[in-house]
């Protein structure tokens, strides 16, 4: 389904600030898999996601979606197959546009946009209202409100709706609950799992929380220094708890997890 072969990315090559963000990542992700990605700062998690959504082009290696090579596709072109929720709620939505207008933008993702009015007809309004009602945040009654006046958690919930509004193949969640308060984070996380499950999406979720990484999804990848250090799924993963994961990581890399930000609980 999604295949990455020997992906290498170096930022600021041949300068003092050279960073080898990815040093040969090869991954095969099957349709319907929910992969959680974990690793310390600078391990290459975000770069990996950026390579998949197309905002970073690899220096080497190829990316395949099914039988199509999409290595050279722009981010805009990939958008019809790959949807993304950003870490920062403000990045995923357009603050001055209303909730309905943001949803209307997402309803045309990857399609030809024309000179029809973006907000048209009561059918579309009802569709948006029904979608928003699923969030149980009361937003269906505030569709003309500029999205900038919502809280971070509300915006992120709408971002998630926007990402999954159209049929697509790969959902990319980039620490999308990191900027939220615990209650909002839990709600958005539960919603992500529910949507990914009900729409049978192939999902990649980067998280800082080891607990979330093991609790959600069907497969966990742990990254270290630009490489995939651990890749666990199936029965092996079911039995795993956090100390086991840390042990495995130590065995695989020869060093302990060295990041305070990585939440061990």
């Amino acid at each position: 389904m999604l295949r990455l072969t020997d992906i290498r990315v170096t930022f600021n090559a041949n300068t003092a600030s050279e960073v080898r963000a990815l040093q040969g990542v090869t991954l095969d992700i099957n349709t319907g898999e929910f992969v959680t990605v974990i690793g310390s700062n600078g391990a290459g998690k975000s770069t990996l996601l950026s390579v998949i959504v197309g905002t970073v082009r690899p220096d080497y290696g190829t990316i395949w979606l099914g039988t199509n090579e999409m290595t050279d596709w722009s981010a805009a072109r990939r958008a019809q197959h790959v949807a993304r929720v950003f870490q920062e709620p403000r990045l995923g939505t357009c603050g001055s546009l209303s909730i309905a207008e943001n949803l209307a933008l997402a309803a045309k993702r990857g399609q030809q946009r024309g000179l029809r009015l973006a907000l048209s007809g009561s059918r579309q309004q009802r569709q948006f209202a029904d979608l928003l009602a699923r969030l149980e945040l009361g937003l269906e009654d505030r569709m003309t409100t500029p999205i900038g006046s919502l809280s971070g958690g509300q915006r992120q919930a709408v971002s998630l709706l926007m990402a999954t509004l159209l049929p697509m193949r790969i959902l990319v969640l980039d620490e999308h609950t990191a900027a939220l308060d615990p209650a909002a984070a839990a709600r958005v996380l539960a919603l992500s799992a529910e949507i990914a499950g009900s729409q049978k999406l192939t999902t990649l979720m980067v998280t800082h929380s080891m607990r979330d990484a093991l609790a959600l999804g069907t497969r966990t990848i742990m990254m270290d220094r630009g490489r995939v250090a651990l890749d666990i799924k199936g029965e092996e993963r079911e039995k795993l708890d956090i100390p086991d994961l840390l042990d495995l990581f130590g065995q695989a890399t020869g060093h302990a997890v060295d990041d305070d930000q990585l939440m061990l609980s």
Binding site: V53, T55, A76, A79, Q80, F86, T93, G95, L105, M162
Partner: peptide, 13 residues
């Protein structure tokens, strides 16, 4: 207003 978002929505900035 938000080039990151529009790119993610398939809009060519």
């Amino acid at each position: 207003e938000n080039p990151s978002m529009s790119e993610a929505q398939g809009i060519s900035n």
